[in-house]
Design a binder for these strands. Structure first.
Length: 293
DNA sequence: CCGCGGGCCTGAGAGC
DNA sequence: TGCTCTCAGGCCCGCG
């Protein structure tokens, strides 16, 4: 589910209750997320202060006073919920006050402030791992990641270089986290449409022979910036699972131009095409064959 | 090294 | 109502 805008929305929701605050205790109701929790997982969290809450690609990173870093990935269906002001309660078994389905609250953080932060993930494709800060550079989950799409290192020249010589189609290249880290199926479809580029185009066509970026590459980078920033502004996209940490929906799904809009009229001015859907690498691609070349 | 397909899980929705 | 089938925002792994 969550791509960069959803993860960033979650991080921003967690920051006020977690950053600068001590973790009184952590409950692991299920240790079998995508990967089993480390044996010393709870011991390395209890009593630590979270000195900073950051994000890298689709990972949320909590810097702890011990020098450990807690790495959290939401997988497809992961979400966090914050409940504040639980002071005074001794929840041996914590039940979320206003809630639909809390059956999949797998990890629950009890903050010293009394706030409770629960990680919910029905499909359990998400995971958590604690890494020493000095070993972050070698961390396998982070090691191969490409640049942040909203960071300074990501520009048309870099993208063209990363795509040069690639046989794969452009959509697959953008989904490859080694090329650029944080995009997923939705925002790749949206960025390609906004830049009028076909998902079927060979990735290498973003670079010229001398590796200089084409105008296509510049347009694509601009579209990626625009769509990600707008989605973050909207609190992400809520199709099924994504919720803000207060339980509210994101609303960028109302601004999709092609994703999940098969059969609708293409929103590009004067295009007049119809949105189509097909499968690439086992996943749905939505696009307008008329204005995306 | 690269690209592709399968698999990991559960739940929602469509069709019968 | 209830069963079966398909599909879902991610990513790792093994194969050719």
């Amino acid at each position: 589910m969550p791509e960069l805008p959803e993860v960033e929305t979650v991080r921003r929701g967690l920051q006020p209750v977690m950053e600068g605050t001590k973790i009184a205790r952590v409950e692991a109701r299920r240790g079998d997320l995508r990967f089993p929790l480390q044996k010393d997982f709870l011991a390395r969290l209890d009593g630590q202060t979270i000195v900073g809450l950051g994000r890298r690609a689709k990972y949320i990173l909590a810097d702890l006073s011990s020098g450990d870093v807690l790495l959290m990935h939401l997988g497809m269906s992961g979400s966090f919920r914050v409940v504040e002001g639980m002071n005074g309660q001794q929840p041996g078994v914590f039940h979320h006050p206003r809630s639909e389905d809390r059956a999949h609250d797998h990890i629950v953080f009890h903050m010293a402030s009394g706030a409770i932060v629960s990680f919910n993930d029905p499909r359990r494709f998400g995971y958590m791992k604690i890494v020493r800060r000095e070993e972050m550079e070698q961390e396998p989950f982070l090691k191969g990641l490409g640049p942040e799409p909203l960071g300074n290192a990501f520009d048309a020249a870099m993208l063209a270089r990363a795509c040069a010589g690639k046989k794969a189609n452009l959509k697959a290249a953008l989904l490859d986290q080694r090329v650029v880290a944080g995009l997923g199926n939705i925002y790749v479809c949206e960025a390609l449409h906004r830049s009028h580029l076909s998902p079927k185009r060979q990735a290498s066509t973003l670079a010229q022979r001398n590796l200089t970026p084409t105008d296509h590459a510049k347009r694509l980078v601009g579209a990626i910036h625009t769509v990600l920033n707008a989605a973050i502004e909207a609190g992400g996209s809520s199709l099924r699972d994504h919720r803000r940490t207060d339980g509210e929906l994101g609303y960028f799904q109302h601004s999709f131009r092609v994703y999940d809009r098969e059969g609708e009229k293409c929103p590009t001015p004067k295009c007049g095409g119809v949105i189509k859907r097909f499968t690439q690498g086992g996943r749905s691609t939505f696009w307008c064959p008329k204005c995306q070349k």
